[in-house]
Nucleic acid binder design. Structure first.
Lengths: 197, 197
DNA sequence: AATAAATGAATGAATGTTTATTCATATCTT
DNA sequence: AAGATATGAATAAACATTCATTCATTTATT
């Protein structure tokens, strides 16, 4: 055997990628900047990733994946009613944005960048998750039976992430995220999904 | 005097910039691509704009500006009740996304890109518009007096634009935007802003 | 009215910088 | 020593930007 792969090095690359993108934007971020910030040689990135696009896409897929896993876990924990699932999910998003502001903002940026899209596998998973959630909500009568999978997806994934990010980067005032936000967002989501006819 | 400035040329540059960015993303868009697509020489862009960043930012400011003007007009038209203003604004956003899909998507992309931000002047205008709207809504009791300017701003500007764009780029199915959407979005917004406590 | 001179618009090839990517070499672990 | 990891200088392509030049239009002069 030879020298071991330094796992921490890969972790540093990921952290550096997110930080650099959050600080300077995807456009201005270069491989050299990422490597320097990660204390890693430029060429080393190419041993692991096939390039900048691949590196960012893989990171994004990772984030989406863990989000879906989290939701699956919450569904398994409580599959008889809709609100607790959403409420816990929203709370986790707020906690995440406070504890991991860089990762959180990185995710937000990619969510709205069409150059980086999901794998077919993740799209399928997304679809089946929304279907499961819809069944739960419709059965308990917490949401309308006419709600579309799109409406579910948008309000659960995009609305929450966006609201939190916009609140943090606010042009009006720098506002703290509060526990009140969990309830506010959860209720808003339930109202949307209930009011479809 | 010399030759006149060809105004259509500037129009072509703007249209080309939006189209190229929508097709390839801001990152992959080059000055050469924009110029070629606009049938304009590469160097000509620098007579009008100081560079790529300036060109995009100016276009973005233009879009924001006309959005604010539109809202001002709607407020002047009906300054005694909140819902008609929002309803008309939402309807205009949907019509705009159907009639000007490229401009609409361009705007959406920039709304979520922190590398391009508003001028202080536009931020001020935004603030005063939200204050005016809040007064109208609170007076008629259509929205909560505890609503923050941020919540107003997010739900009126961001939520509507995002919902529409996500519906069009849907990973689930390609859905048409309908008149039903106007009512759905308007009601959602009013519910959000009413339910703050 | 005809012609020349002046002005500023517009061009696109040339420039120099930046960037992703490669590869010969060094380093580390067993 | 062997076999892998890791380096970073070297490379080549892509890029934004500049600038000498050309071209269209207007104004002045006869």
């Amino acid at each position: 055997m030879a020298r071991k792969i330094d796992e921490e090095k890969i972790w540093r690359i990921k952290a550096s990628t997110m930080k650099t993108i959050v600080d300077y934007g995807i456009e201005a971020t270069t491989i050299a900047m990422i490597a320097k910030n990660a204390n890693v040689s430029g060429g080393y990135l190419y041993r692991i990733y096939s390039g900048k696009q691949d590196l960012i896409n893989e990171l994004y897929d990772e984030k989406i994946s863990s989000l879906y896993q989290e939701l699956e876990f919450l569904i398994a924990l409580n599959n008889t009613s809709f609100k607790p699932i959403i409420s816990a999910f929203v709370q986790n998003r707020i906690v995440y944005s406070l504890n991991e502001p860089i990762a959180s903002k990185f995710f937000y940026q990619l969510l709205h960048n069409d150059n980086f899209s999901l794998t077919e596998e993740l799209k399928d998973k997304s679809l089946s998750l929304m279907q499961t959630l819809k069944e739960i909500g419709v059965n308990t009568n917490e949401i309308s039976k006419n709600v579309s999978l799109y409406q579910l997806y948008y309000h659960i994934f995009v609305y929450v992430v966006d609201y939190i990010q916009f609140k943090r980067n606010n042009i009006f005032e720098n506002q703290d995220l509060l526990n009140d936000d969990v309830e506010y967002l959860t209720n808003n989501i339930l109202n949307f999904l209930k009011s479809v006819d």
